[in-house]
């Protein structure tokens, strides 16, 4: 990445807050798995539902990370074929793909919210603890919406030419 001013403003704060929330959930998941292993040694019994809680926790964490990834533009792209072009053209291409990613993230946000509504309607729960899962799917949708906002932030910045 070029040296650029780090993102600021409400969208950046939202992305960072979601990432920290996701990271905290991931740490909590690690703590739970560790506690389950210790309990398995001490009492020969794991914490009930540890597998599904780890899946749930890491799923929520990954969703929370998405907006921050877009905000810091951490994606793998190949620039070897376009370095000979003027910087302006490269920036225009980046702006274009950021807009496309904005559209994709918005569609996925809407899809996950629909998915959450259907999961709620069908009453699906986890296997051991019987926890409902619709809310987690819905949070995933909101995380994709925040990702779309982060993409919008960058698209705007790149189009204005301050990338």
């Amino acid at each position: 990445m070029e040296e650029e001013i780090p993102p600021r403003g409400p969208v950046a704060r939202l992305g960072t807050a979601l990432a920290l929330a996701g990271g905290t959930v991931l740490l909590a998941t690690a703590l739970l798995a560790t506690a389950s292993v210790l309990r398995r040694w001490a009492t020969a019994q794991p914490i009930p539902g540890d597998f599904e809680l780890v899946s749930l926790g890491s799923g929520l964490a990954v969703m929370g990370f998405l907006a921050q990834g877009t905000l810091t533009r951490s994606n793998i792209l190949v620039d070897s074929f376009t370095t000979w072009l003027p910087a302006r053209v490269n920036r225009a291409m980046d702006a274009f793909w950021t807009l496309v990613w904005l559209g994709v993230a918005a569609v996925l946000a809407e899809r996950l919210l629909v998915g959450a509504r259907e999961t709620l309607a069908s009453g699906t729960t986890t296997m051991v603890l019987g926890l409902p899962t619709w809310w987690a799917v819905g949070l995933g949708g909101l995380c994709f919406a925040a990702t779309a906002l982060s993409a919008a932030y960058w698209a705007w910045r790149l189009v204005r030419g301050r990338g």
């Binding site: 799923g59 990954v62 996950l112």
Partner: peptide, 17 residues
């Protein structure tokens, strides 16, 4: 609809993060 969720909330993949 629910594919991203089921992909991300996967016990085996949780080792990556």
């Amino acid at each position: 609809k629910t594919t991203p969720w089921h992909l991300f909330a996967n016990y085996t993949l949780s080792v990556i993060p």
